[in-house]
């Protein structure tokens, strides 16, 4: 049996297969990302009993429901602080936050910012489909300027977050962006990030043909995928100016930052415990 076959067989064990088919629409990219994540976990030979997946609310938030590890579907926007609680209480666990753009960057934006600043040892898999899918396609914090959604019927006047900009400016040690078209690079990126420490952020541009694509001239799953294929440019170590992501424009993808050995919050706190117990007698 080949390695790939092995992986696929093992992957089934990491899925709550009795819950499949999942809730995501035909062609939804979240399944592709989940697939890449599980394969990366398997390639890392991680102990599934020490792996925890935390999600918020929304389409991507349902991911926690399909992974056969300790998994938590929390409240809207609160996946990161929930995960912080787990990781800080049990630093030996591998804790992954798997959630969507609205959850992580709108309602949960403050948690993202502060958890990144503190450098908690968490891997953040941020699936960005430019919209609030589960509530029917309203615009969110990552909707490109000009895009049409149910709450931007004349085009989106907002300026969206550029997630890698945000993450890098907060000192996140690993930051990458891919699309669901880049299945192999995505898998390699997650695989690499799983082997690193600190607040690692991978943004995956993902298709929502159902409520985003059809309002923005990409009605079918394939047409969204083709859009990613045609418009994305791989540019590792891109500068801030180069990390473009615009409506109908370029999607610059790649591994933008990868730095080892920045102490995590959890590591720094071990030092606090040492000092609290050693200093000043009792």
């Amino acid at each position: 049996m080949s390695i790939m076959e092995d992986l696929r067989r093992e992957e089934e064990k990491l899925l709550r297969t009795e819950r499949l088919p999942h809730v995501w629409c035909p062609g939804c990219g979240i399944g592709i990302v989940l697939n890449a994540f599980l394969r990366s976990v398997l390639r890392r030979n991680m102990d599934p009993n020490k792996l925890v997946v935390v999600s918020g609310i929304g389409c991507t938030g349902r991911a926690a429901g399909y992974v056969n590890v300790d998994s938590f579907h929390t409240t809207h926007g609160r996946a990161i602080p929930f995960a912080v609680g787990i990781k800080f209480a049990r630093p030996d666990l591998n804790v992954v936050v798997f959630s969507g753009d609205g959850d992580l960057f709108a309602i949960g934006g403050n948690h993202f910012i502060n958890a990144a600043r503190r450098n908690h040892d968490l891997l953040i898999i941020a699936v960005n489909n430019f919209t609030y899918g589960m509530t029917g396609g309203q615009h969110g914090p990552t909707t490109p300027t000009g895009a049409y959604t149910t709450t931007t019927p004349y085009g989106n006047p907002d300026r969206p977050f550029n997630i890698p900009h945000l993450a890098i400016s907060l000192g996140a040690p690993y930051v990458a962006r891919w699309t669901t078209y880049h299945v192999n690079q995505l898998q390699n990126s997650i695989h690499k990030a799983l082997g690193m420490k600190g607040f690692r952020v991978i943004e995956i541009i993902s298709q929502c043909p159902t409520v985003y694509g059809r309002r923005n001239y990409m009605r079918s799953p394939l047409s969204m995928m083709e859009y990613f294929q045609k418009n994305s440019i791989v540019k590792n170590d891109a500068t801030f100016e180069e990390m473009e992501l615009t409506y109908n424009g370029k999607i610059v993808v790649g591994e933008f930052r990868s730095v080892e050995d920045i102490p995590t919050y959890e590591e720094r706190y071990e030092d606090i415990i040492r000092r609290a117990q050693n200093e000043g007698g009792d």
């Binding site: 929390t74 929930f82 995960a83 787990i86 800080f88």
Partner: peptide, 23 residues
């Protein structure tokens, strides 16, 4: 040997203790 963290707000605080309680 316990752990204290000052979170960014009260919502983050309670989310963190729920997560910690699961451990």
């Amino acid at each position: 040997g316990g752990r204290f963290i000052e979170m960014e707000d009260e919502i983050g605080s309670i989310a963190a203790i729920i997560g910690a309680s699961w451990t």
